[in-house]
């Protein structure tokens, strides 16, 4: 009963809030850009802006692909351990795609179970390492707030509960419901929290890349800013 609700109307509401909310955040971001305040001529140099912006977003998605990532090898490892699974598993997990197919009549290609398991565990390990790093390093500790831990918990809980359910520890039904609740909670809260970076990362990265592409050097330094 609860399961039917959560994978039916519950899922639909979560996805609407998630995608609708993020689309709204993105729209408001770009609407709020102001060429005079930021001092970037976005419109006259849209092509340069797109080139610089997309290049900047792309480069930072590659593990160790930027000076920044290479300068912090341990954090980069934590980051990609966490994010690779966090992005891929929810979309390509066979269990999720079965539900998608049942409810909406479409699905994404599914990855097989073994890589999905590995990625899910990697995500949790990544999260643990990120927490340990937050505690251990003074320069991260000074920035860290309770909110940061809550966000990390919100993003990791669906994985922890999902793994427990998958391992059939205790009641499968109980943990499955927990997993779905955790996942939907995350989807619903994303647009209203720092998790909005799922979409706003691309906006913010695009903006700085465009700034460098249009105003701060552009073609003078070669194809793009050397991130």
């Amino acid at each position: 009963m609860l399961y039917t609700f959560l994978t039916g109307p519950g899922l639909i509401i979560s996805l609407i809030v998630f995608f609708g909310g993020l689309a709204y955040r993105l729209a408001m971001y770009f609407k709020g850009l102001d060429w005079r305040l930021e001092r970037v001529a976005y419109k006259p140099y849209l092509a340069e802006g797109m080139k610089g912006g997309l290049h900047s977003a792309y480069k930072w998605l590659i593990p160790y692909g930027t000076y920044g990532w290479r300068a912090q090898p341990f954090f980069t490892l934590c980051f990609f351990l966490f994010h690779t699974g966090a992005v891929l598993v929810p979309v390509f997990l066979i269990g999720h795609n079965v539900i998608l197919q049942e409810r909406f009549g479409f699905s994404f290609p599914s990855m097989s179970q073994v890589p999905a398991d590995i990625l899910a565990v990697a995500t949790v390990i990544g999260a643990i390492l990120i927490v340990l790093r937050r505690i251990a390093l003074a320069e991260v500790r000074i920035l860290t707030t309770t909110y940061d831990y809550c966000i990390l918990a919100l993003a990791t809980l669906p994985f922890i509960t999902g793994i427990i359910a998958r391992l059939h520890i205790g009641s499968y039904e109980f943990w499955l419901i927990c997993h779905i609740l955790a996942g939907e909670l995350m989807l619903i809260l994303t647009p209203f929290t720092k998790l909005s970076h799922i979409a706003l990362y691309f906006a913010s990265r695009w903006q700085l890349g465009a700034d460098y592409g249009i105003k701060r050097g552009g073609h003078r330094r070669g194809p793009c800013f050397p991130w």
Partner: peptide, 15 residues
């Protein structure tokens, strides 16, 4: 506006 507010909001405090 949105650029600066977003910068301040989404800062992951990663250090």
């Amino acid at each position: 506006k949105s650029r600066t507010l977003t910068w301040l909001e989404i800062c992951a405090h990663c250090g």
